[in-house]
Amino acid sequence: MREFSPPPAPKKPAPDAARFSASAQIAQEALLWLQSLAAEKRASRHTLDAYARDVATFLAFLTDHLGEKPDSAALVALQPADLRAFLARRRIDGLESRSLLRALAAIRNFLRFLEKKGLAKTDPFGAVRPPRKPHSLPKALTVADARDLIDPDQRAGEAREPWVLSRDAAVLALLYGAGLRISEALSIPRADAPVGGRDRVTIIGKGGKARTVPVIEPVRRAIEDYLARCPYELSGGPLFVGAKGGPLSPRIVQLAVQRLRGGLGLPESATPHALRHSFATHLLGRGGDLRTIQELLGHASLSTTQIYTAVDKKRLLDAWTSAHPRAK
Protein backbone atom coordinates (compact mmCIF):
# COMPACT_ATOMS: atom_id res chain seq x y z
CA MET A 1 0.00 0.00 0.00
CA ARG A 2 1.57 3.25 -1.16
CA GLU A 3 1.65 6.19 1.13
CA PHE A 4 -0.74 8.94 0.13
CA SER A 5 0.97 12.29 -0.31
CA PRO A 6 -1.46 15.20 -0.52
CA PRO A 7 -0.81 17.63 -3.37
CA PRO A 8 1.04 20.74 -2.28
CA ALA A 9 -1.31 23.56 -1.35
CA PRO A 10 -1.16 26.47 -3.77
CA LYS A 11 0.74 29.42 -2.40
CA LYS A 12 -1.51 32.23 -1.26
CA PRO A 13 -0.85 35.50 -3.05
CA ALA A 14 0.48 38.26 -0.84
CA PRO A 15 -2.28 40.67 0.21
CA ASP A 16 -2.56 43.82 -1.86
CA ALA A 17 -3.80 47.26 -0.84
CA ALA A 18 -7.23 46.64 -2.39
CA ARG A 19 -7.92 44.07 0.32
CA PHE A 20 -8.12 46.82 2.94
CA SER A 21 -11.22 49.03 2.90
CA ALA A 22 -9.49 52.27 3.83
CA SER A 23 -7.97 55.38 2.31
CA ALA A 24 -5.12 54.75 -0.10
CA GLN A 25 -2.61 55.87 2.52
CA ILE A 26 -3.91 53.56 5.27
CA ALA A 27 -4.24 50.61 2.87
CA GLN A 28 -0.63 51.08 1.79
CA GLU A 29 0.47 51.35 5.42
CA ALA A 30 -1.26 48.03 6.11
CA LEU A 31 1.03 46.37 3.57
CA LEU A 32 4.09 48.00 5.11
CA TRP A 33 2.94 46.79 8.54
CA LEU A 34 2.67 43.20 7.34
CA GLN A 35 6.12 43.45 5.77
CA SER A 36 7.56 44.68 9.07
CA LEU A 37 5.94 41.78 10.95
CA ALA A 38 7.53 39.33 8.54
CA ALA A 39 10.97 40.95 8.48
CA GLU A 40 11.44 42.26 12.02
CA LYS A 41 9.20 40.01 14.12
CA ARG A 42 9.67 36.90 11.97
CA ALA A 43 5.94 36.25 12.11
CA SER A 44 4.87 32.99 10.48
CA ARG A 45 2.76 32.90 7.32
CA HIS A 46 -0.15 31.64 9.40
CA THR A 47 0.13 34.61 11.77
CA LEU A 48 0.45 37.08 8.90
CA ASP A 49 -2.64 35.67 7.16
CA ALA A 50 -4.66 35.82 10.39
CA TYR A 51 -3.54 39.37 11.24
CA ALA A 52 -4.19 40.62 7.72
CA ARG A 53 -7.67 39.08 7.82
CA ASP A 54 -8.44 40.62 11.23
CA VAL A 55 -7.33 44.12 10.20
CA ALA A 56 -9.14 43.89 6.86
CA THR A 57 -12.33 42.90 8.73
CA PHE A 58 -11.88 45.81 11.16
CA LEU A 59 -11.37 48.37 8.40
CA ALA A 60 -14.40 47.01 6.52
CA PHE A 61 -16.43 47.37 9.73
CA LEU A 62 -15.26 50.98 10.15
CA THR A 63 -16.23 51.73 6.56
CA ASP A 64 -19.76 50.59 7.31
CA HIS A 65 -19.78 52.07 10.83
CA LEU A 66 -18.51 55.50 9.82
CA GLY A 67 -20.14 55.68 6.41
CA GLU A 68 -16.84 56.08 4.54
CA LYS A 69 -13.45 54.46 4.24
CA PRO A 70 -11.38 55.35 7.30
CA ASP A 71 -8.38 57.61 6.85
CA SER A 72 -5.76 58.73 9.36
CA ALA A 73 -8.08 61.39 10.81
CA ALA A 74 -10.74 58.75 11.51
CA LEU A 75 -8.22 56.44 13.18
CA VAL A 76 -6.86 59.28 15.33
CA ALA A 77 -10.44 60.08 16.39
CA LEU A 78 -11.30 56.45 17.16
CA GLN A 79 -13.32 56.04 20.39
CA PRO A 80 -13.73 53.11 22.80
CA ALA A 81 -17.35 52.90 21.68
CA ASP A 82 -16.15 52.15 18.14
CA LEU A 83 -14.05 49.24 19.36
CA ARG A 84 -16.91 47.92 21.51
CA ALA A 85 -19.23 48.09 18.50
CA PHE A 86 -16.72 46.10 16.47
CA LEU A 87 -16.44 43.43 19.17
CA ALA A 88 -20.24 43.22 19.45
CA ARG A 89 -20.54 42.77 15.67
CA ARG A 90 -17.96 40.01 15.65
CA ARG A 91 -19.75 38.29 18.54
CA ILE A 92 -22.93 38.33 16.46
CA ASP A 93 -20.92 36.83 13.61
CA GLY A 94 -20.11 33.89 15.91
CA LEU A 95 -16.50 34.67 16.80
CA GLU A 96 -15.34 33.08 20.06
CA SER A 97 -13.29 34.81 22.74
CA ARG A 98 -9.98 33.36 21.62
CA SER A 99 -10.48 34.67 18.07
CA LEU A 100 -11.67 38.04 19.38
CA LEU A 101 -8.56 38.35 21.52
CA ARG A 102 -6.38 37.63 18.50
CA ALA A 103 -8.30 40.20 16.43
CA LEU A 104 -7.82 42.84 19.14
CA ALA A 105 -4.11 42.05 19.30
CA ALA A 106 -3.79 42.40 15.52
CA ILE A 107 -5.70 45.69 15.41
CA ARG A 108 -3.77 47.16 18.34
CA ASN A 109 -0.49 46.13 16.71
CA PHE A 110 -1.50 47.76 13.45
CA LEU A 111 -2.68 50.98 15.09
CA ARG A 112 0.51 51.13 17.16
CA PHE A 113 2.46 50.89 13.90
CA LEU A 114 0.43 53.82 12.54
CA GLU A 115 0.69 55.74 15.81
CA LYS A 116 4.46 55.92 15.47
CA LYS A 117 3.85 57.84 12.24
CA GLY A 118 1.16 60.08 13.71
CA LEU A 119 -1.57 58.30 11.72
CA ALA A 120 -3.62 56.75 14.56
CA LYS A 121 -4.12 56.55 18.32
CA THR A 122 -4.18 53.47 20.53
CA ASP A 123 -5.65 55.23 23.60
CA PRO A 124 -9.14 53.70 23.13
CA PHE A 125 -7.82 50.21 23.90
CA GLY A 126 -7.19 51.21 27.51
CA ALA A 127 -10.92 51.76 28.04
CA VAL A 128 -12.08 48.52 26.41
CA ARG A 129 -12.31 45.37 28.50
CA PRO A 130 -11.01 42.46 26.40
CA PRO A 131 -13.06 39.26 26.16
CA ARG A 132 -12.33 36.79 28.90
CA LYS A 133 -9.81 34.25 27.73
CA PRO A 134 -11.27 30.74 27.82
CA HIS A 135 -9.55 28.53 30.36
CA SER A 136 -8.68 25.33 28.55
CA LEU A 137 -6.10 22.82 29.68
CA PRO A 138 -3.83 20.90 27.31
CA LYS A 139 -5.13 17.38 26.90
CA ALA A 140 -2.24 15.13 27.86
CA LEU A 141 -2.31 11.38 27.32
CA THR A 142 -1.66 8.85 30.03
CA VAL A 143 1.86 7.43 30.12
CA ALA A 144 0.56 4.09 28.83
CA ASP A 145 -1.36 5.68 25.94
CA ALA A 146 1.61 7.84 24.97
CA ARG A 147 3.86 4.78 24.89
CA ASP A 148 1.35 2.88 22.77
CA LEU A 149 1.10 5.77 20.35
CA ILE A 150 4.85 5.82 19.67
CA ASP A 151 5.30 2.02 19.70
CA PRO A 152 5.88 0.81 16.10
CA ASP A 153 4.62 -2.66 17.07
CA GLN A 154 1.14 -1.15 17.43
CA ARG A 155 1.12 -0.67 13.63
CA ALA A 156 2.59 -4.02 12.69
CA GLY A 157 -0.61 -5.10 10.98
CA GLU A 158 -0.78 -2.12 8.62
CA ALA A 159 -0.12 -2.76 4.94
CA ARG A 160 2.61 -0.13 4.78
CA GLU A 161 6.29 -0.31 4.04
CA PRO A 162 8.40 -1.05 7.14
CA TRP A 163 10.54 2.06 6.66
CA VAL A 164 7.43 4.24 6.68
CA LEU A 165 6.27 2.72 9.97
CA SER A 166 9.75 3.26 11.43
CA ARG A 167 9.80 6.84 10.19
CA ASP A 168 6.47 7.69 11.78
CA ALA A 169 7.54 6.03 15.04
CA ALA A 170 10.74 8.11 15.06
CA VAL A 171 8.86 11.37 14.50
CA LEU A 172 6.36 10.58 17.27
CA ALA A 173 9.19 9.54 19.58
CA LEU A 174 10.74 13.00 19.14
CA LEU A 175 7.43 14.70 19.98
CA TYR A 176 6.98 12.74 23.20
CA GLY A 177 10.61 12.11 24.11
CA ALA A 178 11.94 15.61 23.43
CA GLY A 179 8.81 17.78 23.57
CA LEU A 180 9.16 19.05 20.01
CA ARG A 181 6.46 20.62 17.91
CA ILE A 182 5.75 18.60 14.76
CA SER A 183 7.16 21.39 12.59
CA GLU A 184 10.36 21.37 14.64
CA ALA A 185 10.82 17.62 14.32
CA LEU A 186 10.32 17.75 10.56
CA SER A 187 12.77 20.63 10.17
CA ILE A 188 15.77 18.67 11.52
CA PRO A 189 18.44 18.22 8.80
CA ARG A 190 19.87 14.75 8.28
CA ALA A 191 23.30 16.13 9.19
CA ASP A 192 22.01 17.08 12.67
CA ALA A 193 20.25 13.78 13.40
CA PRO A 194 20.67 12.82 17.08
CA VAL A 195 22.08 9.33 16.57
CA GLY A 196 25.02 7.38 17.89
CA GLY A 197 26.90 9.42 20.46
CA ARG A 198 24.97 12.60 19.69
CA ASP A 199 22.47 12.98 22.54
CA ARG A 200 21.00 16.39 21.77
CA VAL A 201 19.64 18.36 18.87
CA THR A 202 19.37 22.08 18.18
CA ILE A 203 16.17 23.20 16.57
CA ILE A 204 14.69 26.55 15.52
CA GLY A 205 11.40 27.20 17.28
CA LYS A 206 8.79 29.95 17.15
CA GLY A 207 10.10 33.41 16.41
CA GLY A 208 13.29 31.95 14.96
CA LYS A 209 14.63 31.16 18.45
CA ALA A 210 17.14 28.33 18.67
CA ARG A 211 17.19 25.90 21.57
CA THR A 212 19.08 22.69 22.27
CA VAL A 213 17.20 19.76 23.76
CA PRO A 214 18.49 16.40 25.02
CA VAL A 215 17.45 13.29 23.13
CA ILE A 216 17.15 10.16 25.24
CA GLU A 217 18.43 6.77 24.08
CA PRO A 218 15.05 5.20 23.14
CA VAL A 219 14.38 8.15 20.82
CA ARG A 220 17.85 7.85 19.28
CA ARG A 221 17.27 4.14 18.69
CA ALA A 222 13.97 4.89 16.94
CA ILE A 223 15.72 7.36 14.63
CA GLU A 224 18.57 4.93 13.95
CA ASP A 225 16.05 2.20 13.08
CA TYR A 226 14.35 4.55 10.63
CA LEU A 227 17.67 5.54 9.04
CA ALA A 228 18.67 1.89 8.64
CA ARG A 229 15.43 1.17 6.77
CA CYS A 230 14.99 4.37 4.75
CA PRO A 231 15.58 3.68 1.03
CA TYR A 232 16.63 7.25 0.19
CA GLU A 233 19.96 9.04 0.31
CA LEU A 234 19.35 11.72 2.91
CA SER A 235 22.67 13.57 3.03
CA GLY A 236 22.24 17.29 2.47
CA GLY A 237 18.49 17.16 3.02
CA PRO A 238 15.91 16.77 5.79
CA LEU A 239 16.02 13.90 8.24
CA PHE A 240 12.44 12.82 7.57
CA VAL A 241 11.18 12.31 4.03
CA GLY A 242 7.93 11.29 2.40
CA ALA A 243 7.13 8.38 0.11
CA LYS A 244 8.86 10.00 -2.88
CA GLY A 245 11.89 11.23 -0.99
CA GLY A 246 10.79 14.84 -0.56
CA PRO A 247 10.28 16.65 2.76
CA LEU A 248 7.71 14.91 4.94
CA SER A 249 4.36 16.69 5.25
CA PRO A 250 2.94 17.20 8.77
CA ARG A 251 -0.36 15.95 7.39
CA ILE A 252 1.13 12.49 6.83
CA VAL A 253 2.07 12.27 10.51
CA GLN A 254 -1.38 13.50 11.54
CA LEU A 255 -3.03 10.81 9.41
CA ALA A 256 -0.78 8.15 10.94
CA VAL A 257 -1.84 9.21 14.44
CA GLN A 258 -5.48 9.29 13.34
CA ARG A 259 -5.27 5.67 12.22
CA LEU A 260 -3.51 4.68 15.44
CA ARG A 261 -6.09 6.54 17.49
CA GLY A 262 -8.86 4.44 16.01
CA GLY A 263 -6.99 1.18 16.51
CA LEU A 264 -6.09 1.96 20.12
CA GLY A 265 -9.47 3.40 21.05
CA LEU A 266 -8.00 6.79 22.00
CA PRO A 267 -10.03 10.04 22.04
CA GLU A 268 -9.81 12.64 19.27
CA SER A 269 -7.64 14.75 21.55
CA ALA A 270 -4.83 12.21 20.99
CA THR A 271 -2.97 14.19 18.33
CA PRO A 272 0.72 14.66 17.52
CA HIS A 273 0.68 17.90 19.52
CA ALA A 274 -0.85 16.06 22.49
CA LEU A 275 2.43 14.14 22.72
CA ARG A 276 4.24 17.43 23.36
CA HIS A 277 1.70 18.26 26.07
CA SER A 278 2.21 14.80 27.52
CA PHE A 279 5.99 15.29 27.55
CA ALA A 280 5.61 18.40 29.73
CA THR A 281 2.86 17.00 31.97
CA HIS A 282 4.65 13.73 32.65
CA LEU A 283 7.95 15.49 33.36
CA LEU A 284 6.20 17.77 35.84
CA GLY A 285 4.44 14.83 37.43
CA ARG A 286 7.82 13.16 38.01
CA GLY A 287 9.20 16.22 39.78
CA GLY A 288 10.57 18.12 36.79
CA ASP A 289 11.56 21.75 37.39
CA LEU A 290 9.18 24.25 35.78
CA ARG A 291 12.00 26.49 34.53
CA THR A 292 13.75 23.54 32.91
CA ILE A 293 10.52 22.43 31.24
CA GLN A 294 10.06 25.99 29.96
CA GLU A 295 13.49 25.86 28.32
CA LEU A 296 12.87 22.42 26.84
CA LEU A 297 9.56 23.51 25.32
CA GLY A 298 10.95 26.80 24.05
CA HIS A 299 8.31 28.93 25.80
CA ALA A 300 9.20 32.61 25.91
CA SER A 301 7.21 33.12 29.11
CA LEU A 302 7.07 30.98 32.24
CA SER A 303 3.33 31.71 32.49
CA THR A 304 2.81 29.66 29.31
CA THR A 305 4.51 26.68 30.94
CA GLN A 306 2.67 27.10 34.25
CA ILE A 307 -0.55 25.81 32.70
CA TYR A 308 0.94 22.33 33.05
CA THR A 309 0.79 22.64 36.82
CA ALA A 310 -2.99 22.88 36.45
CA VAL A 311 -2.99 19.85 34.16
CA ASP A 312 -1.11 17.78 36.71
CA LYS A 313 -3.39 18.90 39.55
CA LYS A 314 -6.43 18.01 37.46
CA ARG A 315 -5.06 14.51 36.82
CA LEU A 316 -4.50 14.03 40.55
CA LEU A 317 -8.02 15.24 41.33
CA ASP A 318 -9.53 12.96 38.68
CA ALA A 319 -7.63 9.99 40.11
CA TRP A 320 -8.78 10.85 43.64
CA THR A 321 -12.39 11.30 42.53
CA SER A 322 -12.51 7.98 40.72
CA ALA A 323 -10.64 5.89 43.30
CA HIS A 324 -11.01 7.32 46.78
CA PRO A 325 -13.81 5.74 48.87
CA ARG A 326 -14.77 9.17 50.31
CA ALA A 327 -15.05 10.83 46.88
CA LYS A 328 -18.58 9.64 46.20
Rank of each mutant, 00 (worst) to 15 (best):
P247M: 07
L119R: 10
P218Q: 05
G287D: 00
L248I: 08
L255R: 15
P250A: 10
A173K: 00
G298M: 00
A169I: 05
A170N: 07
R220S: 00
R220M: 01
I92G: 14
P124H: 01
L37R: 04
G298R: 01
D153E: 10
V311A: 11
L104M: 13
V215T: 01
P13F: 10
V257N: 05
L317K: 14
R89P: 08
T57W: 07
V201A: 07
D145T: 12
P6D: 14
P325K: 03
L137T: 10
S136P: 03
V311R: 12
P10C: 07
P231H: 03
K206Q: 08
V213H: 00
L100T: 05
Q154V: 09
A85Q: 03
P267N: 11
H46V: 13
L31Q: 12
E217D: 13
K121T: 15
E224K: 04
D148W: 03
R45Q: 13
L83D: 02
D54R: 04
A103I: 05
T142M: 06
P134Q: 06
L95N: 11
A39W: 02
S44G: 07
A52F: 07
R2T: 13
P152S: 01
V128P: 00
L141K: 09
S72R: 15
S97V: 08
S97F: 03
E184I: 02
S269W: 04
L264M: 12
L316F: 03
T271I: 14
A169K: 04
I26Q: 14
T305W: 00
L34Q: 10
G298I: 06
L114V: 12
E217Y: 04
S136H: 14
H46C: 08
R19S: 10
L78I: 07
V311N: 12
P134W: 05
A81G: 15
A210R: 12
F279Q: 09
L37S: 02
S21H: 12
A243T: 01
